[in-house]
Write a protein that binds this DNA or RNA. Structure first.
Length: 572
RNA sequence: GCGCCCGUAGCUCAGCGGAUAGAGCAGGGGACUUCUAAUCCCAAGGCCGCAGGUUCGAAUCCUGCCGGGCGCACCA
């Protein structure tokens, strides 16, 4: 169901014939027609001809009679295309009969690793983990739907110097008490207590340092305690993921420690390649083209002065593993924007070492911060970071109030289901509906609003369509052929026919706000259609066709929201 | 000092080198014996941070400023 591609595939040869070379027929939606083609304008200079003449010649050659009811040269040389109702009807009838809604899997599927979420063991998940987890989840859903082999990599912070103090604190508390504290999700106070002792108590600090050494040496007792910390934390993270409704499971934890055995080989290989340099008693790689303060070259610290490996080494080992062992060709890192430079360095080193060569490539999917209404990073009144579970609970509570207030007919269980879908959906949608590079302002009022570009609005649009079928007493609907006639039907059909193009585009750019924007436009266009075109009150074939349009709209909304990780209740 | 991100309507944001810069919210006006008004329709609202440049054409590309945020060696 990629109408845009159908049109482009007809225009391209006509343009190529006129230009004598391959031409991209720059096609886009238009206010002046259904689609406009801008290629003649950009071609004018190259061909030394007037753009309107080029457009006219293309118009003479292009074969569009079956797809368009009108094609005309307009303005300085645009080609305005009006899609034929008959073509829309055929296209949508086919899509409606397809479980994939006419969106085929990607032509070139590949193995993709998505590195995201990545909380730290024995540390609370806070709002800072929200965006990474939500964007990563949407990335996984979309790429999987397009048929790629997607490997979820939850790069857990499960190794490093903090574990000395955490293990010593665990010993102070006693194993079972510590496990209790962690399993109920009180990670924050556990970590803070350890930290406080580390900062205040010299003897504790000394113990913690010895413990780190024991851990790195592979001391059995120490490792057992470390595993206890990791296991309890993972258990807790899984409850958060469950509440958030993301696809991450226990199989996706791939902590930093996973790469421990590979750090020495990676370092040796960098050395053999002549990339490793001693600098200030540390073993570093200085990729070309990066400078920091005072114009000094920027290093990736592979091995620290104390002999331990830096996180750069772990990141390099992970890249090598992902491309060489897992056979991945697309490496995605859903990590906050502040770490941009770090990843640029890592990718540069990996390329120089030959672990990241075409077609394999890495991409940092950075994202901005979540801000409070004061325009500063979202924090609690006391200035602490906000616990993610608290935020999610509040979303569900607020949504439950809303559901009870708006629809008193719902049963208690229905309210609970709707509240979860709407509350969690609202948070995710607020995140995914704006450009991920930008910071965004967290605002309960706005994200839970029933109108505007929000999850509740889209969920309502979906539920409203489902209610049409309930009212009609239709349990399982078999789509009838779709016939497009009324202008509002035409507008809706045109939107529906654009779903495939949006999905294909987001597959490349991973700009989920485009998908969100598409769904919002689809929902408002549907509302216009529903306002203008009677459905159940229409007669026979028209009624069946309109029901099919309704059904297809509901399914596209449902699938689109699913790709964003958002649930669509049948009733609201 | 070097680098990255951001600056578009009162607010929150779209805008992929092309026609008169678009939505939503708030504020103004209208439409309920309803196919769920949790909706829809109408009007209003803009030196696209500033200044140059490239181009037939710039919110979009380039350069330089201004403003906000964030990085820049042994934490991840």
């Amino acid at each position: 169901m990629n109408l845009e591609k159908l049109l482009a595939d007809r225009l391209a040869p006509a343009f190529s014939a006129v230009a004598g070379a391959p031409v991209d027929p720059i096609l886009r939606r238009s206010q002046h027609a259904d689609y406009q083609c801008d290629a003649a304008l950009s071609l004018a200079r190259r061909l030394g001809r007037r753009p309107r003449d080029i457009a006219a010649e293309v118009l003479g050659r292009v074969e569009l009679a079956d797809l368009c009811s009108a094609v005309a040269v307009s303005g300085p040389g645009f080609l305005n295309l009006t899609v034929a109702d008959s073509a829309l009807g055929t296209l949508l009838s086919t899509a409606a009969a397809d479980t994939r809604l006419g969106v085929a899997p990607s032509a070139a599927t590949e193995t993709v690793v998505v590195d995201y979420s990545s909380p730290n063991v024995a540390k609370e998940m806070h709002v800072g983990h929200l965006r990474g987890t939500v964007i990563g989840d949407a990335t996984v859903r979309l790429l999987e739907w397009r048929g790629h082999h997607v490997i979820k990599a939850n790069h857990l912070g499960d190794w490093g110097t903090p574990f000395g103090m955490l293990i010593e604190h665990l010993l102070d508390l006693g194993e079972s008490e510590a496990a209790d504290e962690l399993s109920v999700g009180d990670l924050d106070s556990f970590y803070k207590a350890a930290r406080a002792k580390f900062d205040a108590d010299d003897a504790f600090r000394a113990r913690a340092r010895r413990r780190v050494v024991a851990l790195q040496r592979g001391d059995e007792l120490t490792l057992r305690l470390w595993r206890l910390l990791v296991a309890e934390s993972e258990k807790y993270f899984l409850t958060v993921y469950d509440q958030l409704g993301v696809l991450l499971t226990e199989r996706d934890f791939r902590g930093e420690s996973y790469y421990n055995d590979r750090l020495a080989p990676v370092t040796d290989e960098l050395d053999r390649l002549g990339l490793l340099q001693e600098s200030g008693d540390a073993a570093c790689v200085f990729p070309t083209g990066f400078t920091g303060r005072d114009g000094q070259p920027l290093p990736i610290i592979v091995r620290k002065r104390d002999g331990g490996y830096g996180y750069g080494a772990t990141d390099l080992a992970a890249i090598r593993h992902r491309t060489q062992d897992l056979g991945a060709t697309r490496l995605l890192y859903v990590v906050g924007l502040p770490q941009r430079q770090h990843f640029e360095l890592v990718y540069a080193v990996a390329r120089q070492a030959g672990w990241l060569s075409p077609p394999a490539r890495a991409e940092h999917l950075g994202f901005g911060s979540i801000l409070g209404s004061d325009g500063r990073m979202l924090r609690s009144r006391t200035g602490d970071s906000i616990k993610l579970v608290g935020l999610l609970d509040e979303a569900v509570t607020r949504a439950a109030e809303l559901a009870r207030q708006k629809n008193p007919d719902l049963s208690a269980t229905e309210v609970a289901d709707v509240a979860r879908a709407v509350g969690i959906g609202a948070i995710k949608y607020a995140d995914l509906s704006t450009d991920r590079n930008k910071d965004y302002v967290f605002d309960w009022q706005r994200m839970l609003s029933l109108d505007g570009n929000t999850a509740p609005y889209l969920q309502y649009a979906h539920a409203r369509i489902r209610s049409i079928f309930r009212r009609a007493g239709i349990e399982r609907f078999t789509p009838a052929p779709i016939t497009v006639g009324h202008p509002a039907e035409h507008a809706l059909a045109l939107e529906l026919a654009g779903f495939g193009a949006v999905v294909a585009s987001v597959e490349q750019t991973l700009q989920f706000h485009r998908l969100a924007g598409y769904l919002h436009t689809l929902a408002t266009t549907f509302s216009g259609f529903y306002e203008a075109c009677p459905v159940l009150r229409a007669e026979d074939a028209v009624r069946d066709s309109r029901l099919a349009l309704c059904d297809l709209t509901a399914r596209v909304l449902r699938q689109g929201l699913y790709l964003l990780g958002i649930a669509t209740p049948d009733r609201m």
